[in-house]
Lab assay of single mutants.
Amino acid sequence: MDSLVVLVLCLSCLLLLSLWRQSSGRGKLPPGPTPLPVIGNILQIGIKDISKSLTNLSKVYGPVFTLYFGLKPIVVLHGYEAVKEALIDLGEEFSGRGIFPLAERANRGFGIVFSNGKKWKEIRRFSLMTLRNFGMGKRSIEDRVQEEARCLVEELRKTKASPCDPTFILGCAPCNVICSIIFHKRFDYKDQQFLNLMEKLNENIKILSSPWIQICNNFSPIIDYFPGTHNKLLKNVAFMKSYILEKVKEHQESMDMNNPQDFIDCFLMKMEKEKHNQPSEFTIESLENTAVDLFGAGTETTSTTLRYALLLLLKHPEVTAKVQEEIERVIGRNRSPCMQDRSHMPYTDAVVHEVQRYIDLLPTSLPHAVTCDIKFRNYLIPKGTTILISLTSVLHDNKEFPNPEMFDPHHFLDEGGNFKKSKYFMPFSAGKRICVGEALAGMELFLFLTSILQNFNLKSLVDPKNLDTTPVVNGFASVPPFYQLCFIPV
């Protein structure tokens, strides 16, 4: 009986604490739906499609509103004006990374994606500088992407125009580009180590996009005490870190300090320079996690976009025909596509942009946080508050993009057929937390897609009208449904 009384008292205290925290903070924060004790607004949000729920709530509470995930307040920004004001106009104040408990377990605050403060700034600055020195957006990395595009075309030829699921092959190409940047090595598509790495990356994007992960991140005790797919994700990350550590040891034994070959060499050189400046942010643990982040951000996002792009091109054969006509006119058949071609191919450029806009790969991006107490639109948001960005509300804005739910390359073309930029184009987020590999991803999408369409016609196994382009999961990332196609050599 005594234990029951204690339990009831504990629960009562928890409920009172929950109510007090919510009521004391709500006077400062933007308005929002009334949260339930302990669980907050979790029942009012469709976990399978958070973005749709945010759109519905914005119609009631406006472009800036507050939700509670458990006891934790989260300020939501919906629509271009609110997102721009926060991420661009007040970029420094909104540059923090929001709480992501599962990532905390995986990387302990290291790396480039989930770190904060001085650690994040130094690692991000170093990573950007190193990638630029190796030619991100310049010639040397373009050579690597072109080489991988040629290998991709050869792998597709091996399908002999038979029906195939493109998931694996389209994942190999961007993964190999990242391998060449980090390890100075590309792998054969049949290499077992490479296959294991690909498998872990593919599993992780599916797990991260599941409703279960949303629950884990908002009720963090689940991570330590409950079984579930989150444990598989943590094991996959541990596998990748151990693999990278092996490569780091190989580099330490063979590195030429006067001739760095890749990202690992550059990081080890930085560690050597910083060894007298303790404590340094440049450690082996930081290198492991930064490399894992580059793999995660640079492989599955690009391969998922490529997979979605081919599905949309199957669905819209008239678009595919126009792209192939432009390829034939500008590039021809006797040389590989290059980035200089893009400025002469406005329709193809528009298609690449429209694919990214339409699929809305990361509907709410990753959570941000404010780095200080900030007054925002007459609300006071306390330091450390998590900020949720609705990228969907920007990419699918119906004023900027008429009929935003329709796939239409003319969203990025003017009346004369010239490519038209849009400030609403934010597939990689915006501001200080914009994806480090934005330029690389854009290069890969253009070169891989043009190389495929230069060499193959795409054949659907069903009537294009019957192809479903609805994402199968739409949590962290929008993942396309399973499909097969035939690559018919031109």
Rank of each mutant, 00 (worst) to 15 (best):
K383M: 06
D397C: 09
R124H: 08
F263N: 02
G296A: 14
D188G: 06
S12I: 13
F100N: 15
S23D: 11
N474E: 10
S286F: 06
M257C: 14
L361C: 07
L453F: 03
N259A: 15
L131M: 11
L268H: 04
Q192E: 14
S95V: 08
F419I: 08
Q278W: 09
R124L: 03
G298D: 00
T55I: 13
N455V: 08
D397M: 04
I213P: 08
V462M: 08
Q324T: 07
V352L: 15
N289C: 11
E438H: 11
R335V: 06
C10V: 14
A430R: 11
F226H: 04
P221V: 07
H276I: 09
D349K: 15
F412H: 03
G417W: 05
C13V: 15
L445P: 01
Y225C: 10
H276T: 11
N418G: 11
Y347C: 02
G137L: 08
P33T: 02
E122Y: 07
Q484I: 02
T290H: 04
A321M: 10
F487H: 00
F94I: 08
A439P: 11
I359Y: 07
L36H: 08
E154M: 07
P402H: 11
G96K: 06
D349H: 15
K383P: 02
D89I: 08
N204Y: 02
I123W: 09
T320E: 08
T299H: 06
S254I: 10
H184Y: 05
R125A: 07
H410I: 07
S220T: 13
I42D: 04
S365I: 12
G298H: 01
T302E: 02
N218Y: 15
K459L: 06
K119I: 05
L156G: 00
S220I: 13
F412N: 01
K235L: 05
V8N: 06
S51C: 11
L440N: 00
P346I: 04
I47K: 13
I488L: 11
G442V: 14
G137Y: 07
D349I: 11
F94V: 11
E92S: 12
S280T: 11
I45V: 10
I215T: 07
P489I: 00
C435N: 00
F94H: 03
V490H: 13
A173P: 02
F110N: 12
F183P: 00
Q22W: 14
K399I: 09
I141F: 08
E81Q: 10
F448G: 00
R144K: 12
I207P: 00
F194L: 12
I434H: 15
D165M: 00
K459C: 08
F376T: 06
D224A: 13
I42Y: 14
V83G: 04
K52R: 12
I123R: 08
D397G: 09
P337D: 00
E122C: 09
P166N: 00
L287P: 01
R125V: 05
I359E: 06
G431R: 02
K138E: 12
N56P: 13
S24Q: 13
E272I: 08
L17P: 13
F100T: 15
L311D: 00
L447F: 05
H316F: 13
T290D: 03
Q484N: 06
D360Y: 04
E250F: 05
G91T: 15
L9I: 13
E93F: 05
Q192V: 11
G25D: 13
L268P: 03
N334F: 08
Q454S: 04
T450C: 11
P163W: 05
C338M: 10
N277D: 11
C216V: 14
K399E: 13
K206N: 11
H78T: 13
L67Q: 01
V473E: 13
T320Q: 15
E81C: 08
N403C: 10
E288N: 06
G62Q: 02
N107Q: 15
N202I: 05
K432S: 08
R377C: 05
D397A: 10
L362V: 15
E300A: 15
N418I: 06
R125K: 15
G98I: 06
A291S: 06
L17G: 11
C372L: 06
L233G: 04
P73H: 01
S140A: 11
Q193R: 09
F219E: 04
L453Y: 03
K315Y: 01
P227D: 09
L485N: 01
E122I: 07
P166V: 02
F134I: 15
S422P: 08
H230G: 12
R132W: 06
P31D: 07
R307L: 00
L67S: 02
R105N: 12
D463T: 06
T34V: 12
T130V: 07
V177A: 01
M255C: 13
P317C: 05
V292I: 13
